[in-house]
Amino acid sequence: MLAVLVLAGSAHASQLIDRNANDVRLMTNAKGEAMLTYKVGGKLKHVLVWGAINAKQPNPNEKQVKFSVDYSGGWGKYNRKIANYWTTFGNKCAGYDGPDLPFFITGCHAPDGSLWAVQSWQVPLPDLGFTPWTAQLSAYELHISHWKGPIAQLEVWSDWIYGGKFHDLFGHATYDGRPIYGFGTTSVGAPTDRFGRLIYLDTLDAPNYGSGWQRENSFVPHNPTGVFCYGFYTFDPTKGGYVHPSGQTAMRGPGVGKQYRLTLDGPGVTPDVQVMIDDPGDYDANDPSKVAYEKQQNAELDSILNGDKLCRQH
């Protein structure tokens, strides 16, 4: 089974601006700027964003592109000489005509032909199917992106590993035809540079977690292949850096569900992208169709490895 997201002619990723925003509006002008207007906790905010587009390919000697952000709405950028810049901003936002995006709030087609988009989703959900127990863990992050040209792409397949004992997902992440990866992670797998991006895995109606979508885990595409793989095992929430509610120390999972949702925090300042894939069901060595499917998926895995040493298990 293959799930693939291909959005030719556009690019995806984003930069965090705020949390739990509502009444979000976006303006763009002919100077390559974007003005976000929104409310948080009833307080009106104006945020000016500029200075970045698309993404650089991984290079340890360079820095990934990043927006400049003025939370005073332009007063800081223009040396405190222009008050209420949003009132004279010169909005040139044409209707958004880019690709469908997950968690999309609003977008613009800018005068130079580039696209801007705003997305809002629950990035910090706890892993291993825990229900968020703090406001921080249930927060919706507001992301903005700016791109023109090729986009990030996720390809994902599902099968089993270790002779059909465990359910498994594998795939690769690319941008402009080249692998997405970073140059380091923390001891618990978080990227240590802006080239590294996380893939967030959610599971639907997993019997061990309950109904609805739950966060199973997150992980990075591998350096230098952009390949990733994930086995649905049981996990100890007290080990590996997992955030868990006080007193809940029992083993968790496996998070096998009906369907899986993978969301890539795209490279540079391109939008976040997402792909969904069905679970293949339990393996049965006496079912010729399951045996043939596993053989086909193993061949698919071998075809994308490109030397990857971490995802060779069938």
Rank of each mutant, 00 (worst) to 15 (best):
W213G: 08
T134C: 00
Q248C: 01
V227W: 05
E33W: 09
G184W: 05
G98V: 05
E155D: 06
V291M: 03
W121I: 01
M276Q: 15
S10Q: 12
S211R: 08
F104Q: 02
T270R: 09
G73Y: 07
R215Y: 04
R19H: 02
Y230A: 01
P288A: 06
Q122I: 05
D265N: 06
Y181Q: 11
D100K: 15
S10T: 11
Q15I: 01
L169A: 10
M27R: 07
S303G: 12
I277S: 09
S211V: 07
K45N: 14
V269F: 15
Y38V: 00
P280Y: 07
K63I: 01
L201S: 05
E155F: 00
L26A: 14
K290Y: 06
V49R: 12
V227S: 02
G268L: 09
K56G: 13
F195A: 11
S187V: 10
K290F: 00
Q248I: 13
V24G: 01
V118F: 13
Q297W: 01
W50L: 13
F89P: 00
K148G: 10
I180G: 00
Y283V: 11
Y293Q: 08
N22R: 14
G113V: 03
D205W: 12
K77L: 07
D127P: 00
Y209E: 11
N29A: 02
L44T: 15
F183A: 05
H244L: 11
Y242K: 10
D236T: 02
V24R: 07
K31S: 12
L16Y: 08
Y293D: 04
D159N: 14
W160Y: 07
Q122Y: 00
V69P: 08
S14R: 06
E33L: 06
D168W: 15
F89N: 05
I199K: 03
N20M: 08
K290V: 02
M251N: 04
T185Y: 03
K92H: 13
L115R: 14
G196D: 13
P280K: 07
G113N: 02
W133H: 04
G113Q: 14
V243R: 02
P111D: 03
H167T: 11
G189Q: 00
V123G: 03
Q15R: 13
I180Q: 01
Q57L: 14
Y242I: 14
G74I: 06
P207T: 11
I199T: 08
T203E: 09
D272T: 05
R19E: 00
Y140W: 08
E216N: 11
V273H: 03
N22C: 14
G307A: 06
K56F: 08
A110W: 14
